[in-house]
Simulated scan of single mutants.
Amino acid sequence: MTRITVLTVGKIKEKYFTAGIEEYAKRLKRYCKLEIIEVADEKTPDKASEAEELQIKQKEGERLRKYIKEDAYVIALAIEGVQLDSVELSKKLEKLAISGESHIIFIIGGSLGLEKEILNRADFLLSFSKMTFPHQMMRMILLEQIYRGYRIMKGEPYHK
């Protein structure tokens, strides 16, 4: 069974996101071993300079790197990444499993995104949209798409 880690910057604050995330985590137990790891986010001052933003991303990146295993396949969520539809994501997950990738790590950055070093380490950059989403919402959307991907892979019905 594939191990999926969702490595994310920041905590979930709203109960409705927590409920949705817990629901998809429960549903995913049939298909994979899911682990969610949160690292602390840095406070971003209003009108932060480019240097301050870089420093914030570096601090968050250091925290993330502690959990990135050398043998894992890393998918970083990034606006500049490749956009896949649900069927394509399902096929990607299936191909990774068939090729022997037993641990997939999805990384969701903080409000400023991910540092360059994390993006460079990633095996694949995935974009959900050119739009920016709050990391809390993105975590729920990502889990829903992983769940949908497994349902598609197994030929099980799932509403479109």
Rank of each mutant, 00 (worst) to 15 (best):
E88Y: 10
I36C: 10
D46Y: 10
K33G: 12
G10W: 01
A97C: 02
N120Y: 01
E52H: 03
Q55R: 12
G100K: 09
Y31N: 04
Y147W: 15
E156H: 08
V74T: 13
E62H: 04
L54Q: 13
K13Y: 08
I146M: 12
M1A: 07
S90V: 14
D123F: 10
K91H: 01
T44V: 15
E22V: 08
K116M: 05
T18Y: 06
E42Y: 02
D46N: 04
I141Q: 01
K130H: 02
A72N: 11
S86T: 15
Y147L: 15
I98Q: 12
K43H: 15
F128C: 07
Y158N: 05
I118L: 12
I152D: 13
T132C: 06
A40P: 14
A78R: 00
M1K: 11
R65M: 14
I152Y: 14
F133K: 02
P45K: 07
V74E: 09
H103G: 11
F128R: 00
K92C: 03
D41A: 04
A40V: 08
M1W: 01
K13N: 13
E50P: 06
A72M: 03
E144M: 03
M153I: 14
L84H: 02
E52C: 01
E115H: 07
R139F: 12
Q83W: 00
I37W: 02
Y16C: 07
K59S: 14
G10P: 02
Q83P: 01
E144V: 05
L84F: 10
A40G: 09
K33P: 00
E115C: 12
D71I: 00
E60C: 02
K13P: 00
A19T: 14
L119Q: 06
D46T: 09
